[in-house]
Computed example of a mutant assay.
Amino acid sequence: MESRYFTIHSHPQGLPSRDFFALESQALPELAADEVRVQNLWLSVDPYMRGRMDGVTTYVPPFNLGEPLEGAAIGEVLESRDERFTPGDRVVHMGGWRDVAQLPGDSLQALPDIDVPPQAFLGVLGMPGMTAWTGLNRIAQLKEGEHVLVSAASGAVGSLAVQLAKAKGCHVVGIAGAPEKLEWLESLGVSAVSYRGKDAQQLSADLKAASPDGFDVYYENVGGDCLEAALDNIRVGARIAVCGLIDSYNAETPTPGPSNLSRLLIRRARMEGFIILDAQNWEHYPEFLQEIGPLVARGELDYRETVEEGLERTPDAFLKLFEGGNTGKMLVRL
């Protein structure tokens, strides 16, 4: 059996072009002991993958040039030499960016028994959902009735963060761009603020208008002008959970920091970055599923997906993340 996969053969400078990604194929060897062969059904693309293309180890190793790219995927077991899995089992794993994955059984997880579409475990009940829940509850230690600001509020992480904060009775402001994204946030009871065409000063003024009393919690996904504007509006004792800084992921030169970092001192605020796959965070995944899984199954959380069709569209789906081309989770359906 052959596997088709995307790879890269050099490290990009700035935002990669579409032809930077090469679609190649390889014949898969016979299954070794404890290996499993999986037909992928859904692929996830995520902003953090851009950092893995630079050839530098950060909190995860870089992609190996010429080898299949990696990412979360949902698939169905075709063959198995691991007694824990049988043909037909639905599993989640990190052998994405390809149509057929052959992996050690230890790297696969059976899908939890929750009555939701399988791709939900790549989004609202997967790493993005877990990231939103962790950032609010464990990093920012959100309390009922607080004032909360979320950047990239219509994305896979941000859209769950705003709803979890609303569920705690918080006043929530979300930063987004496209009119349809702003409308969706408003339908969720979120005060939506557009970042488009604004510098940090104007965005700061608009955030103050949306929440004159400032913010106790800022959930940071973007950086740049969003971070500077947020710092202008934090309250005494504020907590900032730094999940991502997508504004700088394709920068070709070092990006300047916010000019008002002194606000952390003046407001006695705490700013903390976190990586969701660190053991001290991911060990709480069962707790997250127990709390959020039933809400998703009952339709009490409004999650959205942007879907590209076919393996060939995987790079296109990835690049759209940096153009604001997704509402909710960006997925590829095979």
Rank of each mutant, 00 (worst) to 15 (best):
Trp97His: 03
Trp97Tyr: 05
Arg98Ile: 00
Arg98Pro: 00
Arg98Glu: 06
Asp99Pro: 07
Val100Pro: 05
Val100Leu: 09
Val100Ile: 15
Ala101Phe: 08
Ala101Cys: 13
Gln102Val: 04
Gln102Cys: 03
Gln102Phe: 01
Leu103Gln: 12
Leu103Met: 14
Pro104Tyr: 09
Gly105Trp: 05
Gly105Ser: 12
Asp106Phe: 14
Asp106Cys: 13
Asp106Asn: 14
Ser107Val: 08
Leu108Ile: 02
Leu108Ser: 02
Leu108Tyr: 00
Gln109Phe: 09
Gln109Asn: 14
Ala110Thr: 11
Ala110Ser: 14
Leu111Phe: 09
Leu111Trp: 08
Leu111Arg: 05
Pro112Tyr: 01
Pro112Ala: 06
Pro112Lys: 00
Asp113Pro: 04
Ile114Lys: 06
Ile114Asn: 10
Ile114Trp: 04
Ile114Leu: 15
Asp115Glu: 15
Asp115Ser: 15
Asp115Pro: 08
Asp115His: 13
Pro117Cys: 07
Pro117Asp: 14
Pro118Phe: 01
Pro118Glu: 05
Pro118Thr: 06
Gln119Phe: 11
Gln119Gly: 01
Ala120Cys: 14
Ala120Val: 02
Ala120Gly: 04
Phe121Asn: 10
Phe121Glu: 10
Phe121Ser: 12
Phe121Asp: 12
Leu122Phe: 12
Leu122Cys: 10
Leu122Ser: 12
Gly123Met: 02
Gly123Phe: 01
Gly123Cys: 03
Val124Ala: 13
Val124Phe: 02
Val124Cys: 08
Leu125Asn: 12
Leu125Arg: 09
Met127Lys: 08
Met127Ser: 11
Met127Ala: 13
Pro128Ile: 02
Gly129Thr: 06
Gly129Arg: 01
Gly129Lys: 01
Gly129Tyr: 00
Met130Leu: 15
Thr131Ser: 14
Ala132Pro: 05
Ala132Thr: 07
Trp133Val: 07
Trp133Met: 09
Trp133Arg: 04
Trp133Gly: 10
Thr134Pro: 03
Thr134His: 03
Thr134Asp: 05
Gly135Asn: 05
Leu136Met: 07
Leu136His: 06
Asn137Ser: 11
Arg138Ile: 08
Arg138Phe: 13
Arg138Ala: 15
Ala140Met: 06
Ala140Asn: 01
Ala140Lys: 00
